[in-house]
Amino acid sequence: MSGDGTGENASSTPENDGQQFDRLPATADERVVPGRPSRQEVVSWWAERYEISPETWDGHTFWEKGNGKLWAFAADTVSPTDVEGLGMRILRARQEHWKPSTNAVQRFGREATKNVVVLDVDEATRFAKGEDQELPRWDGDWGYVIAAHEIAGDSEASETPRATGEAGDVEPIGVGLYLHGELRSTVPKGRREDLS
């Protein structure tokens, strides 16, 4: 139970409370809870890793619940709040290599122009099934990449602006972990499908 107000904590250093959502500080200078990423760091991470433009996130606030689980919310609300969910879980931080979520990549990854691995029909099918595969042709960064493929349906002709993809017109499938010539699928069990 959270009490009224902010609570009187005797300790001098605030800690991350994994049971509530806290809005991320705008910048590192405003950080109060140690280890909590700032909004600026999160936006920069997507821009540096995948070239997803910072404006992509203009309509979203960022929150932490749990240890390093970051959420994007299309509105603003009071912080902290003890609701069960707030927008979409987009990123796992507080670890050496930040890991984007499948859902975040499907929703926001269309804008990515860097570290996007475009798979052919068979490779995409294996990826969606959750299988790892050899992929020696990739010469981009190692680590977490966006796996994508071409899918029928002309996104340019779409009536929905959000559904148009500028970057090569491929559709993100999910997050891959590329290491030593191998692409590992991180599609969660509940999202895997046999599409062969």
Binding site: G85, G87, M88, R107
Partner: peptide, 18 residues
Amino acid sequence: ALRHNAERLGVTNLAVTN
């Protein structure tokens, strides 16, 4: 199930309460 479905569909304006 609510959270799973909403996130799968790319919804980000949802606050979930119990």
